[in-house]
Protein backbone atom coordinates (compact mmCIF):
# COMPACT_ATOMS: atom_id res chain seq x y z
CA UNK A 1 0.00 0.00 0.00
CA UNK A 2 1.27 3.43 -0.93
CA UNK A 3 0.54 6.09 1.66
CA UNK A 4 -1.24 9.27 0.64
CA UNK A 5 0.40 12.55 1.65
CA UNK A 6 -0.90 15.75 3.22
CA UNK A 7 1.63 18.35 2.05
CA UNK A 8 4.44 18.82 -0.46
CA UNK A 9 6.95 18.10 2.28
CA UNK A 10 5.68 14.55 2.69
CA UNK A 11 6.43 13.69 -0.95
CA UNK A 12 9.58 11.63 -1.48
CA UNK A 13 12.54 13.62 -2.75
CA UNK A 14 13.70 10.83 -5.07
CA UNK A 15 13.10 11.38 -8.78
CA UNK A 16 12.30 8.44 -11.01
CA UNK A 17 11.81 10.65 -14.04
CA UNK A 18 15.12 12.51 -14.11
CA UNK A 19 16.22 15.64 -16.03
CA UNK A 20 17.85 15.39 -19.44
CA UNK A 21 14.80 14.90 -21.62
CA UNK A 22 13.89 16.65 -24.83
CA UNK A 23 10.47 17.97 -23.86
CA UNK A 24 9.54 21.65 -24.33
CA UNK A 25 10.63 24.28 -21.84
CA UNK A 26 7.62 24.51 -19.52
CA UNK A 27 6.16 21.16 -20.66
CA UNK A 28 2.99 20.24 -18.75
CA UNK A 29 3.07 16.50 -19.59
CA UNK A 30 6.73 16.24 -18.45
CA UNK A 31 5.81 17.80 -15.11
CA UNK A 32 2.90 15.37 -14.80
CA UNK A 33 5.20 12.46 -15.63
CA UNK A 34 7.67 13.52 -12.96
CA UNK A 35 4.94 13.65 -10.30
CA UNK A 36 3.44 10.32 -11.40
CA UNK A 37 6.85 8.62 -11.26
CA UNK A 38 7.51 10.15 -7.85
CA UNK A 39 4.17 8.87 -6.54
CA UNK A 40 4.58 5.39 -8.02
CA UNK A 41 8.09 4.81 -6.69
CA UNK A 42 10.81 2.37 -7.71
CA UNK A 43 8.74 -0.80 -8.16
CA UNK A 44 7.07 0.38 -11.34
CA UNK A 45 6.98 -0.48 -15.03
CA UNK A 46 5.92 2.32 -17.36
CA UNK A 47 4.25 1.61 -20.67
CA UNK A 48 4.66 4.49 -23.11
CA UNK A 49 2.39 4.45 -26.15
CA UNK A 50 3.57 6.72 -28.97
CA UNK A 51 3.12 10.41 -28.22
CA UNK A 52 5.14 13.35 -26.94
CA UNK A 53 6.13 11.51 -23.78
CA UNK A 54 7.58 8.70 -25.86
CA UNK A 55 9.22 10.64 -28.70
CA UNK A 56 10.58 13.68 -26.85
CA UNK A 57 11.79 11.56 -23.94
CA UNK A 58 13.59 8.92 -25.98
CA UNK A 59 15.21 10.98 -28.74
CA UNK A 60 18.35 9.21 -29.95
CA UNK A 61 18.24 6.35 -27.48
CA UNK A 62 18.19 8.38 -24.26
CA UNK A 63 15.53 7.72 -21.67
CA UNK A 64 14.91 9.77 -18.52
CA UNK A 65 13.35 6.94 -16.50
CA UNK A 66 15.08 5.43 -13.49
CA UNK A 67 12.55 2.58 -13.61
CA UNK A 68 11.77 0.11 -16.42
CA UNK A 69 9.90 1.55 -19.37
CA UNK A 70 8.57 -0.05 -22.54
CA UNK A 71 7.31 1.53 -25.72
CA UNK A 72 3.93 0.43 -27.03
CA UNK A 73 2.26 1.43 -30.26
CA UNK A 74 -0.21 4.29 -29.93
CA UNK A 75 -3.01 1.75 -30.42
CA UNK A 76 -2.12 -0.75 -27.74
CA UNK A 77 -0.90 0.77 -24.48
CA UNK A 78 -3.69 -1.03 -22.62
CA UNK A 79 -2.86 -4.33 -24.31
CA UNK A 80 0.85 -4.23 -23.51
CA UNK A 81 0.15 -3.31 -19.87
CA UNK A 82 -2.42 -6.13 -19.61
CA UNK A 83 0.23 -8.57 -20.80
CA UNK A 84 2.81 -7.35 -18.29
CA UNK A 85 0.34 -7.63 -15.42
CA UNK A 86 -0.89 -11.07 -16.50
CA UNK A 87 2.67 -12.36 -17.00
CA UNK A 88 3.69 -11.30 -13.49
CA UNK A 89 0.58 -12.91 -12.02
CA UNK A 90 1.32 -16.14 -13.90
CA UNK A 91 4.98 -16.17 -12.84
CA UNK A 92 3.98 -15.60 -9.24
CA UNK A 93 1.38 -18.37 -9.38
CA UNK A 94 4.03 -20.76 -10.71
CA UNK A 95 6.55 -19.65 -8.10
CA UNK A 96 8.95 -18.25 -10.70
CA UNK A 97 8.81 -14.75 -9.26
CA UNK A 98 8.63 -14.14 -5.53
CA UNK A 99 9.08 -10.38 -5.22
CA UNK A 100 6.35 -7.81 -4.93
CA UNK A 101 4.41 -7.40 -8.15
CA UNK A 102 5.48 -4.15 -9.85
CA UNK A 103 2.94 -1.45 -10.61
CA UNK A 104 2.05 -1.31 -14.28
CA UNK A 105 1.31 2.24 -15.41
CA UNK A 106 0.39 3.34 -18.92
CA UNK A 107 1.32 6.95 -19.67
CA UNK A 108 -0.64 7.68 -22.81
CA UNK A 109 -1.48 10.97 -24.45
CA UNK A 110 -4.98 11.97 -25.40
CA UNK A 111 -4.46 10.33 -28.81
CA UNK A 112 -3.35 7.10 -27.15
CA UNK A 113 -6.28 7.10 -24.69
CA UNK A 114 -9.28 8.80 -26.21
CA UNK A 115 -8.74 8.20 -29.91
CA UNK A 116 -6.39 5.64 -31.47
CA UNK A 117 -5.71 3.73 -28.23
CA UNK A 118 -9.28 3.77 -26.89
CA UNK A 119 -10.10 0.14 -27.72
CA UNK A 120 -7.03 -1.19 -25.87
CA UNK A 121 -7.83 1.00 -22.85
CA UNK A 122 -11.45 -0.14 -22.80
CA UNK A 123 -10.43 -3.79 -23.25
CA UNK A 124 -7.91 -3.58 -20.43
CA UNK A 125 -10.53 -2.26 -17.99
CA UNK A 126 -13.19 -4.68 -19.23
CA UNK A 127 -10.87 -7.64 -18.51
CA UNK A 128 -10.12 -6.30 -15.04
CA UNK A 129 -6.33 -6.02 -15.25
CA UNK A 130 -4.62 -4.43 -12.27
CA UNK A 131 -3.15 -1.54 -14.24
CA UNK A 132 -3.23 2.23 -13.77
CA UNK A 133 -3.96 3.87 -17.10
CA UNK A 134 -3.09 7.56 -17.17
CA UNK A 135 -4.08 9.94 -19.92
CA UNK A 136 -1.94 13.09 -19.92
CA UNK A 137 -4.25 15.30 -21.88
CA UNK A 138 -2.55 18.14 -23.74
CA UNK A 139 -5.55 18.41 -26.04
CA UNK A 140 -3.88 17.70 -29.38
CA UNK A 141 -1.48 15.46 -31.26
CA UNK A 142 1.37 17.71 -30.18
CA UNK A 143 4.33 15.54 -31.08
CA UNK A 144 3.68 15.69 -34.82
CA UNK A 145 3.15 19.46 -34.84
CA UNK A 146 -0.33 20.02 -33.28
CA UNK A 147 -3.12 18.17 -35.04
CA UNK A 148 -6.62 17.99 -33.65
CA UNK A 149 -7.54 15.16 -31.26
CA UNK A 150 -10.93 14.27 -29.72
CA UNK A 151 -10.10 16.34 -26.63
CA UNK A 152 -9.07 19.49 -28.52
CA UNK A 153 -11.58 22.15 -27.42
CA UNK A 154 -14.15 23.57 -29.81
CA UNK A 155 -12.76 26.65 -31.53
CA UNK A 156 -9.10 25.79 -31.08
CA UNK A 157 -6.76 26.18 -34.03
CA UNK A 158 -4.62 23.18 -34.94
CA UNK A 159 -2.92 22.38 -38.23
CA UNK A 160 -5.96 20.23 -39.11
CA UNK A 161 -8.50 22.83 -38.00
CA UNK A 162 -7.21 26.20 -39.19
CA UNK A 163 -9.38 29.27 -38.91
CA UNK A 164 -10.23 30.83 -42.26
CA UNK A 165 -12.99 32.67 -44.16
CA UNK A 166 -15.14 29.53 -44.55
CA UNK A 167 -14.67 28.21 -41.00
CA UNK A 168 -13.80 31.22 -38.84
CA UNK A 169 -14.07 29.32 -35.54
CA UNK A 170 -11.37 26.73 -36.26
CA UNK A 171 -12.33 23.38 -34.74
CA UNK A 172 -16.04 22.67 -35.19
CA UNK A 173 -16.47 19.54 -33.08
CA UNK A 174 -17.15 19.39 -29.36
CA UNK A 175 -14.54 17.48 -27.36
CA UNK A 176 -14.97 13.95 -26.08
CA UNK A 177 -15.23 13.40 -22.31
CA UNK A 178 -13.17 10.28 -21.87
CA UNK A 179 -13.37 10.11 -18.07
CA UNK A 180 -17.18 10.01 -18.24
CA UNK A 181 -17.12 7.45 -21.03
CA UNK A 182 -14.79 5.15 -19.06
CA UNK A 183 -16.77 5.70 -15.83
CA UNK A 184 -20.13 4.77 -17.33
CA UNK A 185 -19.37 1.70 -19.38
CA UNK A 186 -16.88 -0.34 -17.33
CA UNK A 187 -18.21 -2.23 -14.30
CA UNK A 188 -14.75 -3.68 -13.56
CA UNK A 189 -13.27 -0.20 -13.05
CA UNK A 190 -12.03 0.18 -9.48
CA UNK A 191 -10.89 3.81 -9.39
CA UNK A 192 -11.24 6.83 -11.63
CA UNK A 193 -10.14 10.41 -11.18
CA UNK A 194 -9.28 13.58 -13.03
CA UNK A 195 -6.24 15.56 -11.94
CA UNK A 196 -4.23 18.65 -12.81
CA UNK A 197 -0.68 19.85 -12.16
CA UNK A 198 -2.28 22.92 -10.56
CA UNK A 199 -2.79 20.73 -7.48
CA UNK A 200 0.30 18.52 -7.19
CA UNK A 201 -0.59 16.93 -3.82
CA UNK A 202 -4.02 15.97 -5.11
CA UNK A 203 -2.45 14.55 -8.30
CA UNK A 204 0.14 12.63 -6.29
CA UNK A 205 -2.51 11.09 -4.01
CA UNK A 206 -4.76 10.13 -6.92
CA UNK A 207 -1.88 8.24 -8.54
CA UNK A 208 -1.32 6.34 -5.29
CA UNK A 209 -5.04 5.61 -4.85
CA UNK A 210 -5.18 4.33 -8.41
CA UNK A 211 -2.23 2.03 -7.75
CA UNK A 212 -3.67 0.85 -4.43
CA UNK A 213 -6.97 -0.09 -6.07
CA UNK A 214 -7.04 -3.82 -6.76
CA UNK A 215 -8.03 -3.70 -10.37
CA UNK A 216 -8.11 -1.28 -13.29
CA UNK A 217 -7.87 2.41 -12.58
CA UNK A 218 -8.07 5.39 -14.92
CA UNK A 219 -6.64 8.84 -14.36
CA UNK A 220 -7.31 11.72 -16.73
CA UNK A 221 -4.76 14.49 -16.14
CA UNK A 222 -4.97 17.79 -17.95
CA UNK A 223 -1.48 18.87 -19.01
CA UNK A 224 -1.11 22.36 -20.52
CA UNK A 225 1.09 22.43 -23.62
CA UNK A 226 2.93 25.72 -24.34
CA UNK A 227 3.58 24.69 -27.94
CA UNK A 228 0.07 23.58 -28.84
CA UNK A 229 -1.96 26.02 -26.77
CA UNK A 230 0.49 28.81 -27.67
CA UNK A 231 1.22 30.49 -24.36
CA UNK A 232 4.57 31.57 -22.82
CA UNK A 233 6.34 28.61 -21.24
CA UNK A 234 6.24 30.10 -17.72
CA UNK A 235 2.42 30.10 -17.67
CA UNK A 236 1.91 26.31 -17.54
CA UNK A 237 0.66 26.21 -13.94
CA UNK A 238 -1.44 29.34 -14.42
CA UNK A 239 -3.17 27.72 -17.42
CA UNK A 240 -3.90 24.56 -15.42
CA UNK A 241 -5.34 26.66 -12.60
CA UNK A 242 -7.44 28.81 -14.95
CA UNK A 243 -8.88 25.73 -16.66
CA UNK A 244 -10.21 24.62 -13.26
CA UNK A 245 -11.38 28.06 -12.19
CA UNK A 246 -13.36 28.58 -15.40
CA UNK A 247 -14.84 25.08 -15.49
CA UNK A 248 -13.05 24.09 -18.72
CA UNK A 249 -11.79 21.12 -16.70
CA UNK A 250 -13.12 19.63 -13.46
CA UNK A 251 -11.41 17.70 -10.72
CA UNK A 252 -13.28 14.75 -9.24
CA UNK A 253 -12.79 11.15 -8.28
CA UNK A 254 -14.96 8.06 -8.46
CA UNK A 255 -14.22 5.59 -5.70
CA UNK A 256 -16.40 2.64 -4.62
CA UNK A 257 -19.21 3.90 -6.85
CA UNK A 258 -19.18 7.33 -5.21
CA UNK A 259 -18.24 10.61 -6.87
CA UNK A 260 -16.39 13.29 -4.99
CA UNK A 261 -15.43 16.74 -6.26
CA UNK A 262 -11.77 17.42 -5.50
CA UNK A 263 -11.90 21.12 -6.28
CA UNK A 264 -14.77 23.53 -6.64
CA UNK A 265 -13.94 27.15 -7.48
CA UNK A 266 -15.78 29.46 -5.08
CA UNK A 267 -16.96 31.53 -8.00
CA UNK A 268 -16.53 30.24 -11.51
CA UNK A 269 -14.62 32.67 -13.76
CA UNK A 270 -15.82 33.33 -17.33
CA UNK A 271 -14.10 31.04 -19.88
CA UNK A 272 -12.79 34.13 -21.64
CA UNK A 273 -10.13 34.50 -18.93
CA UNK A 274 -8.75 31.09 -19.91
CA UNK A 275 -9.18 31.61 -23.65
CA UNK A 276 -7.67 35.09 -24.04
CA UNK A 277 -4.22 33.96 -22.90
CA UNK A 278 -3.81 31.31 -25.58
CA UNK A 279 -2.77 31.74 -29.20
CA UNK A 280 -4.90 28.80 -30.33
CA UNK A 281 -8.05 30.81 -29.47
CA UNK A 282 -6.91 34.25 -30.60
CA UNK A 283 -9.15 34.24 -33.70
CA UNK A 284 -12.37 33.67 -31.70
CA UNK A 285 -15.13 36.30 -31.85
CA UNK A 286 -17.45 37.12 -28.90
CA UNK A 287 -20.21 34.85 -30.30
CA UNK A 288 -17.76 31.93 -30.42
CA UNK A 289 -16.69 32.49 -26.83
CA UNK A 290 -20.35 32.58 -25.82
CA UNK A 291 -20.83 29.16 -27.40
CA UNK A 292 -17.94 27.75 -25.38
CA UNK A 293 -19.34 29.37 -22.23
CA UNK A 294 -22.72 27.69 -22.79
CA UNK A 295 -21.07 24.33 -23.35
CA UNK A 296 -19.00 24.65 -20.17
CA UNK A 297 -22.04 25.77 -18.14
CA UNK A 298 -23.95 22.69 -19.26
CA UNK A 299 -21.04 20.36 -18.64
CA UNK A 300 -20.49 21.66 -15.12
CA UNK A 301 -24.22 21.33 -14.40
CA UNK A 302 -24.33 17.76 -15.73
CA UNK A 303 -21.43 16.69 -13.54
CA UNK A 304 -22.93 18.34 -10.48
CA UNK A 305 -26.23 16.53 -11.07
CA UNK A 306 -24.40 13.26 -11.56
CA UNK A 307 -22.40 13.74 -8.39
CA UNK A 308 -25.51 14.62 -6.39
CA UNK A 309 -27.25 11.49 -7.70
CA UNK A 310 -24.39 9.08 -7.06
CA UNK A 311 -22.89 10.32 -3.82
Amino acid sequence: MLETVKTLRDMPKEEYYVPGHRTCAGCGPALVYRLVAKAAGPNTIFVGPTGCMYVANTSYGCGPWAVPWIHAQITNGGGVASGIEAAYKAMMRKGKYTGERPHAIVMAGDGGSTDIGLQALSGMIYRGHDVLYICYDNESYANTGIQTSPTTPWGAVTTFTPSGPAVPEGKRLWPKDNAQMIAHGHPELKYLATASPAFPVDLFNKVRKGLNAEGPAYLHIQAPCPKGWQFPSNKTIEMAKLALDTGMFQLYELEDGKYKMSYMPKERKPVEEFIKLQGRFKHLKPEHIEKIQNFVDQKVKAIEIEIAALS
Partner: peptide, 9 residues
Amino acid sequence: PFAGTVPSV
Protein backbone atom coordinates in the same frame (compact mmCIF):
# COMPACT_ATOMS: atom_id res chain seq x y z
CA PRO B 1 23.82 8.14 -25.91
CA PHE B 2 23.17 5.08 -23.80
CA ALA B 3 20.02 3.29 -24.73
CA GLY B 4 17.15 2.47 -22.44
CA THR B 5 16.55 3.91 -19.01
CA VAL B 6 18.72 5.86 -16.60
CA PRO B 7 20.46 3.38 -14.27
CA SER B 8 19.52 4.89 -10.91
CA VAL B 9 17.64 7.75 -9.32
